[in-house]
């Protein structure tokens, strides 16, 4: 009985968590593309104006970023200015929660058919590498190891800390600017 009454609250909390994580990730993607050369190198291969979306099917939370050129990503929030070029879609909010709460690695989620790719697979592989790199920077190593297939052995603590601080500062600034606007 109690479980039945709690269930809607749990669902709502899960949805809010996924929405919040998408907002953080979208801004962090923009930030990491300004901070990290390896990410810049990855995103430079995307066409300028390329729109990338991560969303929960059918009409759940979403994040949209655009490659504006020279490897820079721009976070658009939850709405795209035009049809997206690449969409990674979670089949259910529960699957998105598993990944975004670091209970299931992104690669494992792909292997488990939790997500679909609509668009060029090679770009999806590239964006997955970018997401992995971002998670390696912004998460403590113990948590990052749960999120990525393999924690990069060449990512040393000073570089990780400095990059993480710069990314979080940019994310916070972006949040404040959004609220002000």
């Amino acid at each position: 009985m109690l479980a039945k009454r709690i269930q809607p609250m749990v669902s709502q909390a899960r949805r809010l968590y996924v929405e919040l994580m998408f907002q953080v990730m979208g801004r962090a993607l923009q930030a990491v593309s300004e901070v990290d050369d390896a990410v810049k190198k990855e995103t430079q291969a995307l066409p300028a104006g390329f729109l990338f979306e991560m969303m929960v099917m059918p009409n759940g939370p979403r994040l949209i970023v655009e490659h504006t050129g020279l490897g820079r990503l721009h976070y658009h929030g939850a709405s795209a200015p035009r049809p997206v070029d690449l969409s990674i879609q979670f089949k259910h909010i529960a699957h998105a929660f598993l990944v975004l709460s670091f209970q299931e690695k992104t690669a494992v989620a792909f292997a488990n058919d939790r997500m679909l790719v609509d668009g060029d697979i090679s770009y999806a592989v590239r964006m997955t590498r970018v997401l992995n790199r971002l998670e390696s920077f912004i998460l403590p190593k113990l948590i990052a190891e749960r999120a990525v297939k393999e924690y990069p052995s060449n990512l040393h603590l000073p570089h990780k800390l400095i990059s993480a601080v710069r990314i979080y500062l940019k994310v916070a600034t972006n949040f404040v600017e959004t609220v002000r606007a």
């Binding site: 690669a107 792909f110 090679s122 770009y123 592989v125 590239r126 997955t128 297939k149």
Partner: peptide
């Protein structure tokens, strides 16, 4: 090869 979809399912990064 690095951009090939199959690489996602390789057990090692």
């Amino acid at each position: 090869a690095l951009d090939d979809g199959a690489i996602m399912f390789n057990p090692k990064e």
